[in-house]
């Protein structure tokens, strides 16, 4: 089994500019390591993340998608993350209904001061997704190159 390539998941992390992206920067400044599998996309607010982006990521071969925003009540735009919370609750429940593994999606609130939480969250998420193995159920085989 030695020659089987170790599974490295593709993780897309959407981070809001004001809290979570800054939290990710802080994790970097504090040199708090997390796997390189995590790639961050900066969005102004977690409420900018359209469920289509998440489905798109899975379709194109992502193994996990995590969405990070300011803590409820701390949104830079005051209410954005409240909408995010509802939208993602519903989307994730639907994905679950379709038999998609629940651990492939996650929403986490990370403030600009929570670099450690950011790193810990990413470590935990990557671990869970790695345990699930490659995403088969939502990827579009045509997009595999």
């Amino acid at each position: 089994m030695q020659d089987v390539k170790e599974f490295k998941p593709v993780i897309v992390a959407f981070c809001c500019n004001w809290c979570s992206y800054a939290g990710a920067d802080l994790a970097g400044s504090n040199r708090l390591a997390y796997p390189a599998d995590v790639k961050i996309i900066r969005v102004p607010c977690s409420c900018r993340v359209n469920p289509m982006f998440i489905l798109r990521a899975f379709q194109r071969g992502a193994d996990g998608v995590i969405l990070c925003g300011c803590h409820p009540g701390d949104c830079h735009y005051s209410t954005g993350n409240y909408y995010t919370r509802r939208r993602m609750s519903m989307l994730f429940s639907m994905l679950d209904f379709l038999g998609i593994e629940r651990d492939r999606t996650r929403v986490e609130w990370v403030s600009a001061a929570e670099g450690a939480k950011f790193a810990a969250t990413m470590n935990e998420f990557v671990e869970k997704v790695t345990a699930l193995g490659p995403n088969k159920r939502l990827e579009d085989l045509r997009c595999k190159q």
Binding site: V12, I41, R48, N50, R56, A57, A62, C143
Partner: peptide, 15 residues
């Protein structure tokens, strides 16, 4: 942060 821009980023990461 247009829809197609974010999706292009998604594609680039997932490819």
């Amino acid at each position: 942060f247009k829809n197609n821009q974010i999706m292009a980023e998604v594609d680039a990461i997932c490819k």
